[in-house]
Computed example of a mutant assay.
Amino acid sequence: MSLDLCPGARDALARWQDELRALNGASNNTLKAYVADVQGFLAFLAGYHGEPAGLARLARVDLRDIRAWMAHERSRGVAPRSLARALSSVKSFYRWLGRQQGFEPTAVLSARAPKFPRKLPRPLAEDAACAVLDRVGESASVPWVAARDAAVVTLLYGCGLRISEALSLSGADAPLGEVLRIRGKGDKERIVPVIAPARDAVNAYTALCPHDLSPEEPLFRGVRGGALNPRLIARAMEQTRARLGLPSTATPHALRHSFATHLLNAGGDLRAIQELLGHASLSTTQAYTAVDTARLMEVYEAAHPKA
């Protein structure tokens, strides 16, 4: 379906996108996904009603329209998880549009998202995570690259950073102090404590790195001196897990999951872990309690005499 919008609706969509970028600090990829979701919905409305999706038409959208759109998306094979995300984007747009145009978007906001099984994080065992940190450098052909890879994965597991956050560090961050100021998803800033092994790993890397690590340049570099491609860390993890006999779920992001899960297993407070991870919602962090419960159930079923 082609997108058939009146100028007013097209302008509204553009202004909503601008506000998301300015106020919420949404990344370009997130913005593209949100706008594509809403455009898909508006294209459906135009075809479904046989008229351009103007502002007046958008204000009259009711629950039947939403249900028809969702049924159409399911018939196209859109997965429940993707449809739930698209509905969330449409609701966000309608909250904004309702305020701008002075109508009540309750019909859209009351639509229920499809249920889908949430994927639980797959952390590594503590000894496996430590083995990865010890051996990830074996994949490299030169010492400074080995030190670089070890420093990055130590930050993922030791500080709970996302790979994008670790690679966003600059020369100004080295040498690492007691804490790191991290700007994560949604441009939200958080303070992360830095453990001694992470400081030592980064120091070992900076001492060997042949490139000029000036304050305004990326801290982690590729062989030719450019910003380090995250794919290279993923490849180092692939080679390391093959040597250690670890499953395919042992990815760079799994080290962040492991950080959170191991803290929780040691009695860490869920709210504190939420802050360390930079999760906007506690419900996201609560996935780790499900991991812990799943592990306990495995032990229970294997060991309990009544199981």
Rank of each mutant, 00 (worst) to 15 (best):
A56Q: 14
A146M: 03
Y288V: 01
P123V: 05
L264N: 04
E165S: 03
A12K: 12
P305F: 04
A26E: 05
A113D: 05
R243M: 09
V202D: 04
A33E: 02
S88A: 14
C209M: 09
A146F: 07
E138I: 03
G25A: 11
S281V: 09
V179Q: 13
T154W: 09
E178V: 14
S168T: 04
D134F: 01
R76M: 13
A22M: 07
Q286L: 08
A147M: 12
G25F: 15
H72S: 01
G226R: 06
L167H: 13
S88K: 14
A198G: 12
R135W: 03
L97R: 08
T30M: 11
V78T: 04
M237A: 14
L176T: 10
K32V: 05
L155I: 01
V194R: 04
K119Y: 07
P218H: 07
E301A: 15
R95D: 08
A14N: 12
S27I: 05
L156N: 15
R256P: 08
E165C: 02
S170F: 01
P230N: 06
A294T: 11
S89P: 01
L55N: 13
H72E: 00
E73T: 09
E238H: 13
D187P: 02
V192Q: 03
L246F: 04
A307Q: 03
E216W: 08
V142H: 11
A227G: 12
A307V: 10
A12F: 11
E73R: 13
P305I: 08
A71H: 07
W96H: 07
V291G: 11
P105A: 02
T154R: 00
S27L: 07
I273F: 00
E217A: 12
D37S: 09
L83W: 02
P210V: 08
L155H: 04
A290S: 15
I273G: 00
S170H: 08
T154L: 01
L180C: 02
L180E: 08
K115M: 00
L264I: 12
L5R: 08
A234C: 10
F103R: 07
P197E: 05
A53F: 06
G267M: 04
S248H: 14
D200I: 14
E51D: 15
S141C: 07
T30P: 06
A307M: 01
R256F: 01
A172V: 11
S258P: 03
G267C: 01
P117I: 06
D134P: 00
A111D: 15
V223M: 13
A254K: 01
A14M: 07
G171M: 05
L109S: 03
R99E: 13
N203H: 11
V38F: 11
C159H: 03
E51I: 14
G177E: 10
P230K: 07
S110G: 11
R190I: 02
L156Y: 07
K115C: 06
E138K: 13
Y48S: 00
D18V: 09
I273S: 03
A147C: 04
G160Q: 00
G186E: 02
A196T: 10
V192L: 10
L167F: 10
A46E: 00
T293M: 14
A107G: 04
L120R: 10
H253L: 08
G40A: 12
A146S: 12
W96C: 11
E301G: 14
A14D: 14
C130A: 10
